[in-house]
Amino acid sequence: MELSCDRLAAQLAGEPLRPVYLVAGSEPLLVLEAADAVRAAARAQGIGEREVFDMEGRDADWDALDAAINAPSLFASQRLVEVRLPTGKPGAEGGKLIAAFCANPAPDVVLLVIAGEWSKAHAGKWSEAIARAGHVAVAWPVKPHELNGWVSQRLRSRGIKATPDAVARLAQRVEGNLLAAAQEVDKLALLAGGEAGMLDVERMDALVADSARFDVFRLVDAALNGQAAQVSRILAGLRAEGEAIPALMGMVVKELNTVATLARACNFSAECKAQRIWPAKEAVYKRALGRYPPESWQRLLVEAGKVDRIAKGRVRLGSEPADAWLQLERLLLATADKGAARLLAS
């Protein structure tokens, strides 16, 4: 039976660890928290040893995983073995190994499979075997009409009561970004955790200085996620707040350089580790990488340098000074939408 991530947490609290778990979905925050719940349950039940295997494409070493599962533990009576599947597909070899483990689990191993993408097409005999021997939890994306309820529940879990209008305001500001929503709720818990009564819209506004405080982090994430409309909205907000373009360009250049580096890498997972990229952010970069070949990301990086020079008055377009805000918007729209790349020639 497929569980929600919330239901998985309840199951973990009420029973001994099962031999195997599958946590899957394209919503990074929910997948991360569900996997963390399994890790916490393992620690609570005395499992201190943890091994992690990144299985991506041709670089996946299933023989090494098989050897690790069947090797006796040197330091603990039980181990947590994590298998990360960025694409959600273990292939024939991996599927066979996982199914075999489920049929005859190693007594000293709890297997946690984490799939970064998931749909009905990803399921197979291997995931059915996990469901029989353990639990399958899927983090389905939160739909727009579900976001207010999700935010409200998140607030309640942190001991905060808010009016429906205040919840709606917070949901509007985070633009459907669950990670941003979670961060804002945690901030509210610190600022208003001791307050009695309900937070109304005015108090929410006072506590969260425009959560969509239209910050540059959200701006770049919107571009990498392909959210062109959000790019224009956030950029307009930054401009209205009086932000200076040179202050924004450091993060823009940094993120574009990261994507360009990942685009050239032979092994995505290994490069993410080398770049110290948080696992929840990997899906953002993957979506961006599917938009352009490596050389195009290098071109966007060059364009970012041009925008920076325009903002500092070092570049003119024709006889008039160039509009740095317009050029930055064109750059980020091109980052978000392949069809907008033609704007860069304007």
Rank of each mutant, 00 (worst) to 15 (best):
V83S: 00
R342N: 04
A345W: 14
N267H: 12
A137K: 13
W278N: 09
L155E: 00
A274R: 15
R173E: 03
R264F: 06
M1D: 06
A99H: 14
E295M: 15
S319G: 03
R330D: 01
G57I: 07
V31E: 00
I245D: 06
T335R: 02
L8V: 04
P72F: 05
A129Y: 07
Q183A: 06
R79Y: 08
G25M: 05
S26D: 13
A68W: 05
E93Q: 15
E303S: 14
A322D: 05
G193D: 06
E146N: 07
L301Y: 13
V201R: 13
F268K: 07
L262A: 04
A35P: 10
A236D: 12
A322L: 10
I277G: 03
K89Y: 07
E2K: 14
G95N: 14
M249T: 08
P144G: 00
E184V: 01
M204P: 15
V253L: 11
S127P: 11
V284G: 01
K187N: 14
S4P: 08
D210K: 15
G194W: 08
R154E: 00
L300H: 15
E146T: 01
V201H: 11
A99R: 15
R276T: 04
L170R: 01
A99W: 15
L32E: 15
L262G: 02
A76V: 01
H135W: 10
R299L: 11
W62A: 05
Q45C: 10
M55R: 13
G14C: 14
A40P: 08
R218W: 09
G124I: 11
E295H: 09
G57R: 10
R287W: 05
S152T: 02
C266M: 15
K143P: 00
I234C: 08
I245M: 03
R18Y: 06
K312A: 01
R132I: 06
A64M: 12
K338G: 08
A206V: 09
S211A: 14
G197Q: 07
K286N: 03
V142A: 05
S119C: 04
L235A: 14
L29V: 03
E295L: 06
R314A: 01
A68K: 13
K89T: 14
F75C: 05
V315R: 08
A181T: 14
P293I: 05
V253R: 09
V109G: 00
V174W: 00
L188E: 02
L65T: 14
D59T: 03
R58C: 12
G149L: 08
H145A: 02
R309C: 03
A129P: 13
F53V: 07
R342E: 00
G91Y: 12
A304F: 09
A115H: 06
I98G: 09
A181Y: 02
